[in-house]
Design a protein around this nucleic acid. Sequence first.
DNA 1: TCGTTAAGGCTACGGTTGTCGCGATAACAT
DNA 2: ATGTTATCGCGACAACCGTAGCCTTAACGA
Lengths: 210, 210
Amino acid sequence: MASPRPTSDVPDESVTGRARRPGGRSAAVRRRVLDATLAQLVQHGYDSLSIDTVAERSGVHRTTVYRRWRDVGGLLADVLHEASVDAWRPPDTGSLEGDLVAVNHEVYVALTADPVTVALIAASFRSEQAAEALRAFWTDRYDRCADVARRAVERGEIPAGTDARRLLIAATAPLYHELVLLRAATDAHLPELVARSAATAARAGAFTDR
Amino acid sequence: MASPRPTSDVPDESVTGRARRPGGRSAAVRRRVLDATLAQLVQHGYDSLSIDTVAERSGVHRTTVYRRWRDVGGLLADVLHEASVDAWRPPDTGSLEGDLVAVNHEVYVALTADPVTVALIAASFRSEQAAEALRAFWTDRYDRCADVARRAVERGEIPAGTDARRLLIAATAPLYHELVLLRAATDAHLPELVARSAATAARAGAFTDR
DNA sequence: TCGTTAAGGCTACGGTTGTCGCGATAACAT
DNA sequence: ATGTTATCGCGACAACCGTAGCCTTAACGA
């Protein structure tokens, strides 16, 4: 006994293509596969994304991709994971309305110009990994956005006790609803309109507990 | 010439499994297939839904189902189409808040207890037919909900000029967001909470134009 | 340097998915 | 009644998807 060899510990991050021998080759494989995934997605859209196309494009063997990422959702989850390890902070424009408008513009761009976001949402219905990655990503972002509400309270714009998460969701959800679920005609100043509504609502105390 | 034979008119509703000879056999086939689709969905979930399973279950040949409905999205679109031809009216409880809460309870049930809704959303990412059917369904429902806002204006609860669609979306979108996109822990009184926020916002004039 | 072994490459296989062409059947018009 | 033809059933097919087994390569530790 004694020395606990790392034979079967490693928490379990094998989920996102993480390897126990990440040096050299494995890292190169991951890089090639993720690059190929993103390139394929950008060039030919979500429907073209399959393990096979990514494998061929990356030059990595089919079975290897299957083993490490399991399915398309796994690939996208890893892409998102890599992209979301950043120092993103919510905008700080000096007013609640300004902050919310800025956030919504980012959401708008993500939903209309960035194929990864929509692809991940689509994949989340067919892959538990994708769903989990998306949930984690959004939770993280909404947590970081708590500052927006906190600052607004400090400035006296909105009542103390305002629930930051509810406020942020009220500000962004209609955008997702229109663009992702309804796929309605995209009105270019919808982000502003929705953000302003949410700000008004917050000022009226719509998101205070109880 | 003369007599315009119905050889190739029929607008184009062939999209939803509609046949040009709907009598007897075709009608029976449609019935069996739609019944099988719904039964399969209820019993084994969306993932189990494929043209093949539905065909086998219904006793209709694979190729026939492929020809008339094209893909799973087409099947679900037809199921929805059949189910949504009803006389649904938005609730009329006597107050805006009451109406919104009632609507949200219906949405909540649809998203947590009715497999068709979520299945259709999932399918809408992979099938143009499903996306179109969903868009049409929601447009229709939001249109009917305009009464809720109209009555609230008449009662003097909210300002004239309130945009009914924006109000309704503000009331329901956070629910879709939490349950469908985030798949967050389902808080049983979330529908009420969100509806009340929207009512407060509407009273504060958050949804008036400009 | 060298042994251990995780990870990648390869081949092969069975199941599923979507399509095509043909012949049979029955809906509808005359 | 009878002819036309839309629709269905059928068999076959290629393409794709996911997995298993086995061998090779190279990461890592001693």
